[in-house]
Design a protein around this nucleic acid. Structure first.
Lengths: 135, 135
DNA sequence: GTTTGTGCAAATATTTTGCACTTGA
DNA sequence: TCAAGTGCAAAATATTTGCACAAAC
């Protein structure tokens, strides 16, 4: 059996552009939004490349993903790489990174209590932020 | 302003079939799976109708939905109609209904603490159940 | 007999992939 | 150089919708 060799990762204009569009923004953004932002910024990147780059960033642990109720994936370059959750504004995507020590323990306990192994939990909080409330 | 009148709900063979395929099963099932089950059971129902019926059941509060990591919706006729969460087997869909009183309070608190309103939280636990572990 | 419901096919929407062409190292 | 990356268009997925026909009540 042979494992696929990692292979060097090239620093391309597109990858820099996508990473740059995510960094410094504290909102979750969809691939389509990022694609549009880059286009209007005059630094166009193919949509497929945006998706491919985002996936790589997620795999590398630099970016977090979550899915909206209607199945769209949203991406965000989170400050902390450790496990955490999000409080996301349903209007603008603004996000606050949070952690819930109690929740972690509870999830693990409930899981094993029922004979389940390899427990993974998804905890996301959605709300309307102060700024969007007025709108 | 006029609200759309509810209109009577007709009890059709299809609706009975879909409801029946979900009741008595303690697993989350996809629309496609249900469609197939009904077909092989000799009680075929159009896929579009399966989707429409499931949506109606969800709206009526009889059925719970959740989305897998790869964006597929899973449906389950839950025992309790009140708010609760799920511990789902990622292999077979078997589910245990759970509640986390602590989580509820925590979610609400964290939300308002950051100035967000209309907080909604999604908490789902995924694991591998005892029976699927052997496989 | 109406009006609601169904089936099918076509339309949506998001994301993925094949392939010829570019480009970074 | 030349493997890795990109763009575009086509494919794949899951779900929704328009419309003619069927069937509850």
């Amino acid at each position: 059996m042979s494992t696929t060799q990692p292979g060097p990762v090239r620093m391309t204009r597109q990858r820099v552009a996508v990473a740059d569009a995510l960094q410094g923004v504290d909102e979750f953004r969809s691939a389509q939004q990022l694609h549009e932002v880059l286009r209007s910024r005059g630094d166009a990147v193919g949509l497929a490349t945006v998706y491919r780059t985002l996936q790589a960033l997620v795999d590398g642990g630099d970016v977090d993903v979550l899915r909206t109720d209607d199945g769209e994936s949203l991406y965000r370059w989170c400050v902390r790489r450790e496990h955490h959750h999000h409080l996301v504004c349903r209007e603008c995507g603004r996000t606050v990174e949070i952690d819930g020590p109690t929740v972690e323990a509870w999830a693990a306990m409930v899981g094993t209590e029922h004979g389940f192994s390899e427990i993974v939990h998804t905890v996301e909080l959605w709300g309307t932020c102060r700024d969007c409330r007025g709108a």
